[in-house]
């Protein structure tokens, strides 16, 4: 007699309810309710500095943000971090993925070791690089000096215009392992016959890379780019210890203030709750919008070719 393992008895329903009900309640109360509550708050002028009952003001917070030049400066800075980080990350991770598809003794060890930075606390990474870039005793200065590239120590993080470049470098160091894994998986799924056939037909390795490997990697690029875009666009931890200097209530460094730090400042320093809530939803929509564009563009390209 075949047993229908999916047949559900009343006892089973109790089992399902005991397991799922607490989860539904937890997620409902601690994720859905606050997300909706924040959305409602974003339509009010709630400000904890001013003792008044919050008033419903419609979309005014959103228009106030869009008309505010600081919002655009901060958004542009976040996009600058993205546009510095993504190419750097993709270049490094594509190179590493190609290196790790080669078969050589010690490959597994190299793979394990290069994934380490991704798994460490980003807050430590910011500190770590802050120490390396230190102007008085930093390792980068020591290294460059010993190689004869610089004659005296440079205070790398002092110049406000270049701080953001170092932020991008550290973000790249923190994240490059993830796209490497994605691209490596993509490379390994390319059928070997295809490359062999191209070789027989007389294609050079550059030609087969450009005409076979790259197009087939497009979906992996789409995934990696989207996730790395969101990670860079919403960067917070790394900046906090590298350049922000916001610990223990100190002022947040205006030269590396990105969207998330701006949001933190609005809510937890200025206590402008309504405006901060509006900003967090704007960040969400911006991230989702760009993510959708990335994925559809790159996927379509992959499908066409």
């Amino acid at each position: 007699m075949p047993i229908d393992r999916n047949r559900v008895t009343r006892q089973d329903l109790v089992f399902v309810a005991v397991i799922l009900l607490p989860l539904i309640i937890l997620v409902g109360i601690l994720i859905y309710f606050p997300a909706i509550d924040s959305l409602i708050t974003s339509f009010t002028n709630e400000n904890l500095r001013i003792r008044r009952l919050p008033k419903f003001i419609g979309l005014k917070n959103y228009s106030k943000l869009i008309e505010n030049s600081e919002f655009w400066i901060v958004t542009a800075r976040s996009l600058l971090v993205v546009s510095l980080t993504l190419p750097l990350e993709l270049l490094i991770s594509l190179g590493l993925a190609l290196l790790l598809t080669e078969v050589f003794p010690g490959r597994a060890m190299v793979r394990t070791l290069i994934l380490l930075p991704w798994m460490l606390p980003p807050i430590v990474n910011g500190f770590l690089w802050g120490w390396i870039l230190n102007g008085e005793y930093g390792a980068l200065n020591g290294l460059l000096y010993q190689m004869g590239i610089i004659d005296e120590y440079v205070t790398w993080l002092r110049n406000p215009d270049t701080q953001i470049i170092w932020v991008a470098v550290v973000q790249t160091w923190t994240r490059f392992a993830f796209p490497t894994i994605i691209l490596l998986a993509g490379l390994q799924s390319i059928p070997k016959d295809l490359l062999d056939a191209a070789k027989v037909d007389g294609a050079s390795s550059w030609q087969s890379f450009k005409n076979i490997v790259l197009p087939l990697l497009m979906p992996s690029f789409a995934v990696a780019l989207t996730i790395e875009f969101i990670a860079a666009f919403q960067i917070f931890d790394v900046i906090w210890t590298l350049t922000a200097g916001g610990s223990a209530g100190g002022a947040i460094n205006p030269f590396t203030k990105t969207l998330m730090l701006y949001n933190y400042e609005l809510v937890f320093r200025d206590l402008r709750i309504g405006l901060g809530a509006a900003l967090s939803y704007l960040i969400l929509f911006l991230s989702l919008g760009v993510a959708i564009v990335f994925v559809t563009r790159l996927y379509n390209q992959a499908v066409k070719s």
Binding site: N6, V16, L20, D37, S280, L284
Partner: peptide, 26 residues
């Protein structure tokens, strides 16, 4: 298998990609 399984799964998963930040204030 039970009624509403898909809906409950969707309910639990939907907010996964949301950045934490949007709910943090409330």
């Amino acid at each position: 298998k039970f009624k509403g399984k898909g809906v409950i799964f969707f309910f639990l998963m939907l907010m996964m990609p949301l950045p934490l930040w949007v709910s943090i204030i409330a």
